[in-house]
Design a protein around this nucleic acid. Sequence first.
RNA 1: GGGCGCUUAGCUCAGGGGAAGAGCGCUUCCUUGACGCGGAAGAGGUCACAGGUUCAAAUCCUGUAGCGCCCACCA
Length: 878
Amino acid sequence: MTRTPGSLQGSYDPESVEARWYPIWERSGAFKPETNPDGEPFAIVIPPPNVTGVLHIGHALDHSIQDAVIRRKRMQGYATLWLPGTDHAGIATQMVVERELADEGLTRHELGRDRFVEQVWTWKSRSGGAITQQMRALGDSCDWSRERFTLDEGLSAAVREVFVSLYERGLIYRGHRIINWSPGLMTAISDIEVEYEEVTGQMVRITYPFSDGDPEAREGITVATTRAETMLGDTGVAVHPEDERYRHLIGRTVRLPLMGRDIPIVSDAAVDPGFGTGAVKVTPAHDPLDFEIGNRTGLEPIQVIGEDGRMTTAAGVFAGLDRFEARERVVEALRGGGYLEGIDEFVHTVGHCSRSGVSIEPLLSRQWFVKVDDLIGPAVEVVRSGLSRFVPTRWEKNYFHWMENLQDWCISRQLWWGHRIPAWYCDQDGAVLVARERPDGCDRCGNRSLRPEDDVLDTWFSSALWPFSTLGWPEDSPDLQRFYPTDVLVTGYDIIYFWVARMLKMGMEFVEEVPFREIVIHGLVRASDGRKMSKSLNNNVDPMEMIELYGADALRLSLLQAASPGQDVPFDVQWVDAARRFGNKLWNATKFALIHIEPGSVPQTGGYPENPGPIDCWVLGRLGEVGSRVDSLLDDHRLADAYSLLYSFVWSEVFDWYLEMAKPVLAEGGPEAASTRRTLGVVLRDILKYFHPAIPFLTEELFNHLVGDELLITSPWPDLPHHRAPGGISTLQELVSSLRRLRSAHGIPARHKLHVILHDPDGVSSDWWNPQLGALVGAAAVTAPHPPEDPGYLRLEAGAVEAFVPFEGLIDVEAERERLRLRIERARGDLEQVERKLSNQAFRLRAPAEIVEREEARAADAARLLATLDSQLQDLGS
RNA sequence: GGGCGCUUAGCUCAGGGGAAGAGCGCUUCCUUGACGCGGAAGAGGUCACAGGUUCAAAUCCUGUAGCGCCCACCA
């Protein structure tokens, strides 16, 4: 089913390469852990994207990292599971379907709950698969046979089990509290779904006159507020008990303007005497702090703003007005009544619904809550003790900081799409029944017509169970046993609070083991100017468009190279383009190799030459060094560093040097050429292996040409024998570079052969240098026992080798002198610097020996260079 | 009000106590039989600023300035 290997035709075309391999991988079973039954398990569960969603650039980053990790582990012989799935995303999905209904002129209420939910399922089956198709285009090697959806039967059972048992443990309760109400969505939302924005508003000061003193005195107490309309629901005024200005007023009553209600002045320590006027109007129904003060001092809440954001009948003449309209009208009315002391501009933060953007209304409401205090302890402890490790660790600080000041989590939502809360009400005796299955009747009065709870759970409730619910919990399934705790979680820092913390809490509470051993945090992908990508700025980058233009491989590599752990990545097409060009380079290098080696003849593993020639030995040695460095970087999840290192090694060493040095060897034929052909094959093969996790499609394609029938995706990770680079290589490279510089500086044309006399007292050079010098710089060298005595030669140094080039008629002598003077100046500077360092006694005493040695060597080098340059200058004649 | 980052080449960013790095851009040369989606040679940086620790600081510490992000019930 794989393609017959052959030589490569044409040029690199990502689209055709990428179309081919995904189905082959999937059919081969490589994505499933069963492909390697004896392997040690290694598991990642995907952060489930919304079913409504399409792949955005953030997913592309998140998935590139996960896929790179999982692919490498697979090649290293683990039984890897990358478990995919999607989230039902309550609000988001419901909104999409509601909008569709609106186009037909319908509302969900007209449709009714059951038909509406049915409609959402239909919608889900129709377009919910879009994102999973896009994941395939990206190359995500997940096990689709284990795909999960948060509303699946199994996951729903997990949700019910967790809800009921938390309720039984007293960790879930139903309470009447101030919650964040989104008038836009008509539902409660949790604290962390509120986004705070700084706005400039008005702080109005209002005087409430005393109603219990001399009516003629026209005295009162002045309060300040930014939400004037809430004064209609005031049931008291609070001051700090120690506040000298107001202490004597505690217990008196004032008449609430516009409403004519008498309300008491109370004292409460929560009041900040330094803020505003030091006296707070208390609206228990519309402010969390006021609600608490009200509870402590016995002030009743009066709800004046309704769930739709309009004033209620309790607001008197303002009833029916929109809350913002009411704010203006109330201020006007207060001004008219002479109650208004003044208006100041005031900058403060206002909460907005992260979904609908509407300003949040704190509302007194009966909702379900999770008491988080008891769950935090173990979730903090496992991170502190390192059982679950954040990468990079600095995110732990943020995690702890956040865990310290957590409020109870409001989990009920007034939506239809989601997990219905497993509670039933008996309307006869007011009993609340919470159960895994619908109870037959009220356990107290026997009433058989129980009313089910209408509310559904916050989407994040089911997400919190994801690492174990997807593996079969509450059943003690084989997958749960084998893959839990999962090994790595890869996610952005933006959902540490929403999601990661809650998974840790729930995992510890219900499975009593950490959900994942490592938490790899990446940043957000930003626009190239560093700003957030958003629809309103119209600076969104569509990953699918990138894939079309540059290929998934290029997109992945560019994201991986740019993503430093935990750091935001500004996205720029130039990176993707550079990555594509790298792909092109790989393609062409393989094409070159296939001219010289039989397609399909490279062994899948091993096959390193027994007696490698000098350049082969060098490249194998370098590959080994770089490879082990790359391995340790990858182990530390420093993917950006690993792939950047590989990228520059492959391009600037293997392709720019080794391939060029291989050409003359291959041309000559003989046993040397055989070794080089072999080396060329295995080195390319190993490079493909190292790059496979980042650029899976192209590497698979090229591997297929080199190796034949075996799939790269399940080939073993490279394991190189140690090779020691022969000393001559770096000297040769230095010499070549010097000669190239000479050519370049003086415009010596390529066709002009350079004749070089080598003086090589240590015998560093050898026979194989000559063809190399010929191919790489167009130079021919002869070795002489002594440096030439007559003038007219330019001396170059490469390590212990001196090279003499006759310059008569070749170079611009004046220009060369100028160049030398400049270099001499620089060399002097260097020498002085090193000598200064070496003459420092403290340095000699304190610095480690190897550093001192290195500095000494440096000084010697600098001195020799200076001498060389000086003599060069003399050779040119002054 | 707390916390966490960032400031390095023209641009976008890596690096993180012992000789300043990448990609893109820029200059010059090269129609080399893998690749012009390429090659070679270059120019370009007091690593934000000020102190400190150290034999040695872009790197560690303290402070300052600017810019981001997160958290918080200042009405």
